[in-house]
Structure formats: structure tokens, C-alpha cells
């Protein structure tokens, strides 16, 4: 494997790559993902469906990690906010005939507005309190989605128009892959600026950050709003890909799924979750479909993996990769 020389003075190709936040290995991975649905055995519809799911979870975990890994607030209502974006987009599409392509963005805007509010409210709270508050917001949102039957049709499920007319999953895959890429690039570019440094400072020690002249109010709100906006944006895709929305998608267990991927991938790395999501979702789906006589086994593996990673390897896959495959000076 070629190893990236990410020293600042590097010119040429690697310098260009560094500017767009990719290592050669990452670029190869991206290329593989792009051609994957075209080569057998991955060109079968159900496997492309898994790919879409994996890419979706990957993108969510990147957006999740942007908050959890940097300002150190676990947004426990993450999937509820994603669901808000999904419902906004779907309802607008149904009631006003808005194109799904525009609807996705309205989902992002509403989710961002809610993220802004949560960010404002959690300002005074730290760590676990902020996580709980976001969680209660999520519970309240899910309760609303269940009970406001006139708007959301509740547990019956809301049908949403799909993005494409075809029944093929391949176009959806490229859309979500582009969204994953965009999510990664936006968060990564932000993290690389002075702002990212401020995020990390706040996450590690808020008092020290404040003493050094970092204004936590501003940065925390920006971070939270952006992360929620991305969640709502991805939620819009969810709505117009699966075509049906139930309040179940806002459940805490969905957030746990994203959280597990983000943490197993490696907190604070952004790319860790995105990389690990693909093999992970595939393994889970394989276990689920091949051992259907043992329901829930895949989730047990899920939970055990999260426990083991948290105890023995809290840096996750990203730390593992950095230690074994990267040169010292190139470590992020």
C-alpha cells in the first residue's frame, strides 16, 4: 500500500489530495465503492440495497461523529432529528407536490433549525446532561410523530414519493455515495480550519478553552446546527429512497446503531465510521439473512462489539489503522 506523505510542504499529487482531505488509500477505497455496484456479485439488487444502507449509515455516522468526536456531546436524539428531516421532506412532497430533490434541502433546513434550538438549550449543560436533553428531544419528537396522525399518519406509515422512477437501486446508490462524500468533505474541511481546533478544545476541556479565548457558545451552536442539518439532509434521502416513513425510524435504537458504527470506526476521526460501516452492515445483514432462525443474533454481535471496543480499544478502527498502517508523521 502506498503511504500518504501528508507533510505540509508536499507538493504535486499528494499535496492536492491533502487539500481535499484524502489519502491515496482513501481515494482507492472511494474508487472501489464507485465501481462496486457494477461488478458481480455486487450487481445484484439486494446487494446494492445493502450497499445503499451501508452508505447511508456511513454518512450518518460521519455527521454524528462531527458532534460526538469533536465537541464531545453525544447527540442521543440524532435519528429523531434525521426523522424530522425525512418527515418534512415527505410531507412537503405530498402536500405541495414539491420535488424530492428540493424537499431534501427543506428537510436539512428544519433539522438545522431544531439543531440550533437544541444547541442553544444545551449550552449550559455538559456531557451526559446534554446527551439526555437531546435524547428527551428525540423522545418528544418520536412521540409527536406517532400521535400527530393527521399529519404523519402515525404508525400506519407515510408514503413518500421516490427520487427516481426506476425500481433499480443503483442510481440511489450513487446519490447516497455523493451525499456521503459531501458530508465527509464538509465536516473534514471545517475540522481542518481553526474552527476544528476550537471544537476539539471545547470537547476536551471547556474551561481551558474558554480561558484561551474560545467562545464555546458560538462553536457549540455551529457544530450542533451543522450536524443536525446533515442529519436532516440524509433523512430526506431516507424518505425518498425507502418511500415509507414510520415513527420507528426515530427510535433510540436507530441512534444506537449509528453510534455503534461511529465509535467502532473511531471517534474523532470522521472517516473511521464511514469505512467501517460497509463491512459492518454487510456482516450484519449476512448474519441476519443466513441465521434467520436465530433472530437478534446480529444485534448481539453489535452490542458485544461496541462493549469490547469501548473497553479494550476506545480509539476504534481509526486508531488501529493509524498505528499499524501509517507513518508516524502522517498521523492525523
Amino acid at each position: 500500500m502506498e503511504i500518504a506523505n501528508t507533510a505540509p510542504q508536499a507538493g504535486g499529487l499528494s499535496g492536492l489530495l491533502e487539500k481535499v482531505c484524502f489519502t491515496p488509500a482513501g481515494l482507492v477505497g472511494l474508487a472501489v465503492l464507485i465501481v462496486l455496484p457494477l461488478i458481480p456479485p455486487f450487481n445484484q439488487e439486494y446487494l446494492v440495497r445493502w450497499l445503499v444502507q451501508a452508505a447511508f449509515i456511513a454518512a450518518l455516522s460521519v455527521a454524528f461523529d462531527f458532534t460526538a468526536g469533536y465537541i464531545n456531546i453525544v447527540n442521543f436524539g440524532f435519528c429523531a432529528i434525521m426523522g424530522l428531516g425525512a418527515y418534512t421532506s415527505a410531507i412537503l412532497g405530498l402536500r405541495t407536490g414539491l420535488s424530492p430533490w428540493v424537499g431534501i434541502w427543506t428537510g436539512a433546513v428544519t433539522a438545522a433549525a431544531l439543531g440550533f434550538v437544541i444547541g442553544l438549550i444545551t449550552l449550559r449543560l455538559r456531557g451526559i446532561f446534554a446527551a439526555c436533553l437531546a435524547w428527551f428531544f428525540g423522545l418528544a419528537l418520536m412521540g409527536l410523530a406517532t400521535k400527530m396522525v393527521w399529519l404523519t399518519r402515525g404508525p400506519l406509515g407515510l408514503r413518500a414519493p421516490r427520487l427516481f422512477e426506476t425500481s433499480s437501486n443503483v442510481p440511489y446508490y450513487y446519490v447516497i455515495l455523493a451525499m456521503l462524500l459531501a458530508t465527509y468533505l464538509v465536516t473534514r474541511l471545517l475540522v481542518k480550519t481553526k474552527m476544528g481546533l476550537a471544537f476539539q478544545a471545547i470537547g476536551q476541556n471547556m474551561e481551558a478553552a474558554r480561558t484561551s479565548g474560545v467562545n464555546p457558545v458560538y462553536y457549540r451552536i455551529v457544530n450542533f446546527t451543522l450536524s443536525c442539518a446533515l442529519a436532516g439532509w440524509l433523512g430526506g434521502f431516507y424518505a425518498h429512497y425507502y418511500g415509507i416513513l414510520t415513527p420507528d425510524m426515530m427510535h433510540t435504537s436507530k441512534t444506537v446503531e449509528v453510534l455503534a458504527v461511529a465509535y467502532i470506526g473511531g471517534r474523532g476521526s470522521l472517516w473511521g465510521g464511514a469505512v467501517i460501516a460497509f463491512p459492518f452492515i454487510f456482516a450484519m445483514e449476512l448474519v441476519r439473512s443466513s441465521l434467520s432462525s436465530l433472530p437478534g443474533l446480529n444485534l448481539i454481535i453489535y452490542g458485544l462489539l461496541l462493549i469490547l471496543v469501548m473497553i479494550y480499544y476506545s480509539g476504534g478502527f481509526a486508531e488501529f489503522y493509524n498505528q499499524h498502517f501509517r507513518k508516524k508523521e502522517a498521523r492525523a
Partner: peptide, 23 residues
């Protein structure tokens, strides 16, 4: 970072116990 780590640990524990029951 004990509080956050142990919190995530209990999240994993919850998933495992619920699904063990199901299994």
C-alpha cells in the same frame, strides 16, 4: 472520560441483553 465511556458501554449492554432475551 469515564462518564461518557461507561454510558456507551451500557448502551451496548442494553442492546445485548434485549436481544439475548429475544434469542
Amino acid at each position: 472520560n469515564w462518564v461518557m465511556n461507561s454510558f456507551l458501554l451500557t448502551v451496548g449492554l442494553s442492546v445485548v441483553l434485549i436481544n439475548l432475551h429475544q434469542l
